[in-house]
Write a protein that binds this DNA or RNA. Structure first.
Length: 603
RNA sequence: GGAACGGUGGCCGAGAGGCUAGGCACUGGAUUGUCGAUCCAGCCGACGCGAGUUCGAGUCUCGUCCGUUCCGCCA
């Protein structure tokens, strides 16, 4: 046990990441954590760490015997203060791996401000030797000391700072909306908060401030934004957490083009923070085209490898999987993998596994190696197989991967395969950024399980003006099947295959809103029950308006290439939505339950 | 709701039925130039939990818990 020193009035003069050759000769005070201690007897080195970096501190017994003796007591993660002189290292002793490696601090004095237990895992482990995430999440405060997280969280802060500056420059007003609101059906499951003052009633945490921001438009606030925390009680993923943050934006008299320009300007500014130059205006793809060409509504455009329609080469085919797909208005499509003729049986099996996850029956393949080989050879014959290869534009040494079936399955499986292949074949250029707008999303999505249409975005999304007549026919004329064709003024901003923002122009007219509710099978009473206050508000002079929300973590994922949302937030939850550090969710005591009028029923 | 993979000492990690490697960390000592220091010595565990199969189980089977990833879900 070390005897601790008082910090007293001592103040830091520099951070542990800032000292350079030109600081030589200065007397400095550094404070931080012991990253490592190297003991050479009369000479002891300490790497002192703070959020900015590492500085080597030297304790020389001849130079400062007392400090030297004291330095022998420190251990990893002890907190110390050091006063000493910055000295230039001799050429042979410089450390090019450290930004501060040209200098070191010759310690005169050391204060041991706090000791530390031996950490349960090593903070300096190589990226592939990191302790299990379970352990690191439990001791999140230790994991966060690592430069990786220090860097990510500071980048996050500078991104949010840049957003504030930009939105302010653009004349937007930041407005806070409530966290305790009311549960709305449809959409994600709500996190729910019981009410003490109203027995049997519950608040819900917002999935997004959607209705409030539209109310802000009706309220004449004109240009609203907020860095908003959102909550969704759905299963987690590498890119999904139960609570996350989004830049929420809405403005009045909005056109889609204005939204595009606003967000393009924003993303250009934000990406500049990491030295990336996005080209604006962004490329645009309609939802239909994105799905057709890339099998995804958030295509990664850093590489090509578009889906190829093989139907023209299959006219009159009797091969059952293909014939039945084409008959049932499905598709047969393929992906050409340049140089893919080298694929082994095992690799093809693995790729098939990927496609099967998305419902594909089988993954057919054609390899144009020195000799033709194909899983379709027996069924189709050499000539038909070559016709497919030609149709797809495959050349010598390429492979063609083929999926047949329902359009949605073909798109999903080939879309996923396309991403997987790009990773495996290293087709993704480093430091490339490919932003685009995906536009004209469908208004409605048909759910087979209950045979009705649901709003794809949300029920306040405006249809395209030119689709309004069809929409009316579909709803009032009873031609329900047309609903699937109605397009919305909805859009997503996608960067490198990551959906970083999504929004729409909203409905401001009561008659159109009525049509949408009817299309969704909501009676007037039901709609009133659920959104009554909002429908009322819409009738008091609602300006045309629209907006968008950009996920902060998603944007950072695109910005950094980090593929896990947990690495971009300070205190994330596990896949089962638990916080291992604070052990949440937890039980509450019977008194609290009673006050909340809640009875727990054992299952 | 479903699937896959994983859970071995403080951490990483080998070990595919019979004796459980190694590395790091940690402790003590040595050591004037290291920066993944080095050298010497020491310390640490019945392998997530439960049941089963077996003469015998980290090693096989089943269940369960936890973690990760994916499908569903996420208007």
């Amino acid at each position: 046990m070390a005897v601790l020193d008082h910090l007293g009035e001592l103040e830091r003069t520099h951070s542990c990441g800032g000292l350079r050759a030109e600081d030589a000769g200065k007397t400095v005070v550094l404070m931080g954590w012991i990253a490592v201690r190297r003991d050479f007897g009369p000479l002891t080195f300490v790497d002192l760490r703070d959020r900015d970096g590492l500085t080597q501190v030297v304790f020389d017994v001849e130079d400062a015997p007392e400090a030297h003796a004291r330095a022998k007591e420190v251990r990893g993660e002890y907190v110390i203060a050091v006063r000493g002189e910055v000295v230039l290292r001799e050429a042979a002793q410089r450390n090019p791996k450290l930004s501060t490696g040209d200098v070191e601090v010759q310690a005169r004095e050391i204060l041991i401000l706090n000791e530390a237990r031996t950490p349960p895992f090593q903070l300096d482990a190589a990226p592939d030797k990191l302790a299990a995430e379970e352990v690191r999440l439990k001791y999140r405060y230790l994991d966060l000391r690592r430069p990786f997280f220090q860097k990510n969280l500071r980048l996050r802060a500078s991104v949010v700072g840049e957003i504030h500056r930009y939105m302010d420059e653009q004349g937007f007003t930041e407005i806070e909306t409530p966290i305790l609101i009311k549960s709305t059906p449809e959409g994600a499951r709500d996190y729910v908060v019981p009410s003490r003052l109203h027995a049997g009633r519950f608040y819900a945490l917002p999935q997004s401030p959607q209705i409030f921001k539209q109310i802000c438009m009706i309220a004449g606030l004109d240009k609203y934004y907020q860095i908003a925390r959102c909550f969704r009680d759905e299963d987690l993923r590498a890119d999904r957490q139960p609570e996350f943050t989004q830049l929420d934006v809405e403005f009045s008299f909005a056109t889609r083009e204005q939204v595009y320009r606003l967000i393009e300007g924003l993303l250009v500014r934000v990406f500049r923070l990491v030295g990336a130059e996005l080209k604006a205006p962004f490329q645009r793809l309609s939802y239909a085209e994105a799905l057709r060409r890339f099998g995804s509504d958030k295509p990664d455009l850093r590489f090509g490898m578009e889906l190829q329609d093989l139907a023209p080469a299959l006219e009159g085919t009797t091969f059952a999987p293909f014939a039945s797909a084409l008959e049932k208005s499905g598709e047969v499509k393929g992906l050409v993998v340049k140089g893919g003729a080298h694929f082994s049986r095992k690799q093809l099996d693995e790729l098939q596994e990927v496609s099967k996850r998305y419902g594909a029956g089988a993954l057919a393949w054609i390899k144009l190696g020195d000799e033709l080989s194909s899983s379709l050879l027996k069924a189709l014959g050499e000539e038909a197989v070559m016709r497919l290869a030609r149709q797809a534009g495959a050349e010598k040494n390429d492979a063609l991967l083929v999926v047949a079936g329902k359009s949605s399955v073909v798109a999903a499986s080939l879309g996923a395969l396309r991403n997987e292949l790009a990773r495996r074949e290293k087709l993704i250029p480093a430091n490339a950024f490919a932003p685009l707008w995906v536009t004209e999303f469908p208004m409605f999505e048909y759910h087979e399980d209950d045979g009705r249409f649901y709003a794809m975005h949300h029920p306040f999304t405006s249809p395209l003006d030119e689709d309004l007549p069809t929409f009316e026919r579909a709803v009032e004329g009873g031609e329900t099947h047309l609903l699937g064709q109605i397009r919305a003024k909805a859009y997503d901003a996608v960067v490198n295959g990551i959906e970083v923002a999504g929004g729409s122009i909203r409905i401001h007219r009561r008659d159109v809103q009525r049509l949408v509710f009817k299309a969704l099978g909501l009676t007037e009473e039901k709609a009133r029950e659920r959104f009554g206050f909002f429908l009322d508000a819409l009738e008091y002079g609602t300006p045309p308006h629209g907006g968008i929300a950009a996920g902060i973590e998603r944007t950072l994922m695109a910005l950094t290439g980090i593929d896990n949302i947990r690495d971009l937030m300070a205190f994330p939850k596990t896949a089962s939505a638990a916080d291992l550090m604070i052990d949440a969710p937890g039980q509450i005591d019977p008194h609290q339950l009673e006050e909340l009028h809640i009875l727990i029923v054992e299952e």
